[in-house]
């Protein structure tokens, strides 16, 4: 596990973490606000999805310091992510033609 140790050095200090956390909080606030605004449903749905994606990536890259570790961990995490998203999209498409 040698290479894990030396990656400790470049861990961001607490200040950076707090700013990230505030940004995440703000994003959640925007999400909830968008939810209560009565814009046309199509835009709101996409805003909500994009915001949660943004929050998701921020946590993964900063809090889980995926950016600093070598990219084999990234592969270990994003490969299943791609597989799962494609399976989910396929399932949604397949279940579209439920003829009740």
């Amino acid at each position: 596990m040698a290479h894990i140790a030396e990656s400790h050095a470049n861990h961001p200090g607490p200040r950076l973490y707090i700013t990230i956390a505030l940004i995440l909080g703000a994003l959640t606030g925007i999400e909830v606000a968008a939810f209560f605004l009565e814009m046309s449903s199509w835009i709101v749905v996409w805003i909500l999805l994009l915001l949660s994606l943004a929050k998701f990536l921020m946590v993964v890259f900063f809090f889980m310091h995926l950016r600093m570790d070598d990219n084999r961990f990234a592969l270990l995490f994003f490969a299943p992510m791609i597989v799962m998203v494609s399976i989910a999209v396929a399932l949604l498409a397949l279940f579209q033609n439920i003829t009740r």
Binding site: E31, V32, F35, L48, L49, L51, S52, L53, K55, F56
Partner: peptide, 10 residues
């Protein structure tokens, strides 16, 4: 975050 975004809000 995903559950909140996708399930609750959307």
């Amino acid at each position: 975050i995903v559950i909140f975004g996708v399930v609750y809000l959307v």
